[in-house]
């Protein structure tokens, strides 16, 4: 048997790695490397689940591992890669509202805030400290994904952001409690749908929303409404 402290250490290490992967998503400019970071992150999530399984021996965690690996490590990155090839966007170097460095600082702040808000609340439940840490990191990751969503221009990056949020929720979920297999299944399907559809739409849009906007500018009539207001 592996000792508890070793497992705990492993969990801590994995959590730190997962935070780093989220930060990578916030800062990387190359689209392909974003995909890779996301796959890595999902893999780390699967590892965490494995570690928890070793610790708690709950069969639901293994389901989670399998689902995560199939959908998030293999299927989604592959699919995104295909889409990216078609729309041929290599880099997403524009940032809005917040620069990468500031985003990293903000993420740290958010981790602190979430810890301050949630830790006392979660202590009401009979869970250990490491679980609380995991949950807090999970929620923080959701926010980091959200930051990705609004600070990056390309829709494809936004999808990655959304997926990160989702990973955060899964992290939160596996630390706090395991959901029934069925629900998990459904959720994954749902997320697949969302990702597919948004990806296809971004494909339909050919490029970023902004470029689109530039195209449309020539068709003045679409924007009469806007002009009228100014």
């Amino acid at each position: 048997m592996i000792s508890d402290s070793l497992l705990e250490g492993a969990l801590k290490a994995l959590l730190v790695l997962i935070v780093i992967s989220a930060l990578l998503l916030l800062t990387r400019k190359n689209v392909l490397s974003l995909f890779r970071s996301y796959a890595l992150q999902s893999l780390l999530l699967a590892f965490i689940a494995v570690v928890l399984y070793v610790q708690e021996r709950k069969i639901e965690l293994l389901f989670t591992v399998v689902l995560t690996v199939i959908s998030k490590v293999i299927l989604i990155p592959f699919f995104l890669g295909r889409v990216q090839q078609k729309i041929s966007i290599k880099r997403d170097a524009e940032f809005r509202y917040i620069k990468p460095v500031a985003a990293v600082i903000l993420s740290t702040a958010i981790i602190v805030i979430i810890y301050a808000v949630f830790a006392p609340l979660l202590r009401i439940l009979p869970v250990t400290e490491i679980f609380i840490l995991g949950s807090v990191i999970g929620i923080s990751m959701t926010f980091m994904g959200l930051i990705v969503c609004y600070s990056r221009k390309r829709v494809i990056t936004k999808v990655i952001g959304y997926l990160t949020m989702e990973n955060g929720v899964v992290l939160f979920g596996i630390f706090l409690i395991e959901l029934p297999f069925l629900i998990e299944m459904f959720v994954i399907m749902d997320i697949l749908m969302v990702v597919m559809i948004t990806a296809i739409m971004s494909f339909g849009m050919n490029a970023s929303v902004e470029e689109f906007h530039v195209h449309l500018k020539s068709l003045r009539q679409w924007f009469k409404e806007e002009d009228a207001s100014k």
Binding site: I113, Y150, F212
Partner: peptide
């Protein structure tokens, strides 16, 4: 003019602010 943006970013940004604000409020 605030609501007529073509891009998504500002709205997700507002959403981020609103949710963070709500969580802080709850805290």
């Amino acid at each position: 003019s605030q609501q007529n943006e073509v891009t998504l970013d500002p709205f997700i940004f507002y959403e981020f602010l609103a949710i963070l604000g709500l969580i802080l409020l709850v805290g």
